[in-house]
């Protein structure tokens, strides 16, 4: 669990931007904010954070690093828009739900269902229904990200 304004410089510092290798990026995810993150994060973990998550630089290395580290989803009170787009485009699940953030404590088991637009805190047995993503954006998610979505679009234009 992290606070407000977790920026992309702490998610993946610029000194690692000379690589696009997911595993290298993953090893340094969040290191300036939480040096133990990369070693303690477990496959499928959900990151919970405050407002304006992912603010700052447009580096797509940020969602890629989190995903590479095993993070399955980020639930935050709100997201910075470029990070949000990048997450959708690269297949990291993101959900804005301030109520869930307020009620969750470190170590709680949290799960996110994008299709149902639902966040559940299994430890506390509470579920929330935040505002679903626009249909258009869900289309991109269902296609598996922007690359397959655009590919499909170009193919249908050609045929």
């Amino acid at each position: 669990m992290y606070g407000d304004n977790v920026d992309t410089d702490v998610i993946i510092p610029a000194r690692y931007l000379t690589t696009t290798d997911e595993s290298v990026l993953a090893a340094h995810a969040l290191e300036d904010l939480d040096p133990s993150f990369a070693s303690s994060v477990q496959e499928g973990d959900v990151v919970v954070a405050g407002a304006n998550f992912g603010c700052g630089s447009s580096r797509e290395h940020a969602p890629v690093a989190l995903k590479g580290a095993g993070v399955s989803a980020v639930v935050a009170s709100s997201f910075a828009r470029i990070f949000f787009r990048n997450a959708i485009n690269t297949g990291l699940v993101v959900m804005a739900c301030p109520e869930a953030v307020a009620a969750t404590e470190p170590g709680d088991a949290v799960c996110v269902d994008l299709a149902k637009a639902e966040v559940r805190n299994e430890t506390k047995g509470i579920a929330w229904k935040p505002e679903p993503l626009p249909e258009f954006v869900m289309d991109i998610v269902r296609a598996g990200g922007l690359v397959p979505w655009t590919k499909g679009r170009l193919e249908s234009q050609r045929s």
């Binding site: 700052g56 630089s57 447009s58 580096r59 797509e60 470029i82 787009r85 990048n86 485009n89 690269t90 990200g145 922007l146 690359v147 655009t150």
Partner: peptide
């Protein structure tokens, strides 16, 4: 594909920053 692409708006255009995948599209 850089967050400070919003700069160009000083000339009266709409400009915004995106990530690499958006730019690829």
């Amino acid at each position: 594909a850089d967050s400070h692409s919003c700069t160009y708006g000083a000339l009266g255009c709409f400009s915004t920053g995106v990530g690499s995948t958006d730019l690829a599209a």
